[in-house]
Nucleic acid binder design. Structure first.
Lengths: 152, 152
DNA sequence: AGTGAAATCTGGACGTT
DNA sequence: AACGTCCAGATTTCACT
């Protein structure tokens, strides 16, 4: 991970479909060298995948909510995490410090849909003591950019 | 947005660098037809950008936190939102319903770094009544996939 | 590990169905 | 609106530095 790699990550973070030749001239290397570094970064796991950002509204997925979940006991974790992996509407699941155990980020079609996920899917599990739902009214900033710097 | 478009979005969501020919055979169209649909989806704004998913740990950005922010009065919004846009560590900022006003998702290098952002950058503003910070200990699921279905 | 040239393959344009 | 062909250009391979 030298300065060339950082420049590459910086450049492709927001435009993965950039041509290697353009990337190369952007960072000051030849096209083969740039392409080889990108595939090496993929093998190392630094680059996880090339993805496409889709407008959620355009595909009818305009509702976003955060749901904090508290579990009764450790043995309720496994079935909860399995369900979370299965539910397409659950985009993120974080194990958090503090009052609650998990924080879910959910994207779905409507409040009715959200109700189904929380009241039907999640609460069908044993051991869910409490859920606290926060509805998102407007997303002011949403990026997947990471702050990159020289020294890791 | 017919079934071909949905198939395209489904296919390129996790691999934007797919070749048009492969995408075409995947969805059952010719390469020119597939490419034209992708550029049409871009023009329509359904496809926002092609991005690269980078492992945060690999670039020394292993700490994630959610920060709920309460503002004193409406006139404190503009400077707050401006700062949020400027801070690279703030990946998301959502206007939320409920007790607090905004929910930030922050990625940074360390707790010391987080402290700088919250105590120094954010609290330097007037009108920030309260912040509630939740540290993420482990991210169990993280995806940008959207649940796509036929009828929007 | 990077460069430059050559061979190969991809992607955009155009005319046709 | 999608297909098939064609050509310019991009990607990959390879020998060399």
């Amino acid at each position: 991970m030298d300065s060339y790699d950082l420049k590459i990550l910086e450049a492709i973070m927001n435009r993965s479909r950039i041509k290697w030749a353009d990337l190369a001239s952007l960072i000051g290397l030849s096209a083969p060298a740039a392409a080889e570094r990108v595939s090496r970064l993929q093998e190392q796991g630094v680059i996880k995948e090339f993805s496409t950002v889709i407008d959620p509204e355009a595909v009818g997925c305009g509702l976003m909510a955060f749901v904090a979940v508290s579990l009764a006991r450790p043995e309720h974790r496994a079935p909860f995490l399995k369900l979370v992996q299965q539910l397409d509407e659950v985009q993120e699941c974080h194990h958090i410090a503090g009052e609650d155990d998990y924080l879910l980020k959910i994207r779905c079609r409507s409040t009715k849909d959200l109700d189904r996920i929380i009241s039907h899917e999640l609460k069908s599990l044993d051991g869910i003591v409490r859920t606290k739902t926060t509805i998102v009214m407007d997303s002011v900033k949403e990026t997947t950019r990471l702050p990159l710097r020289s020294e890791p």
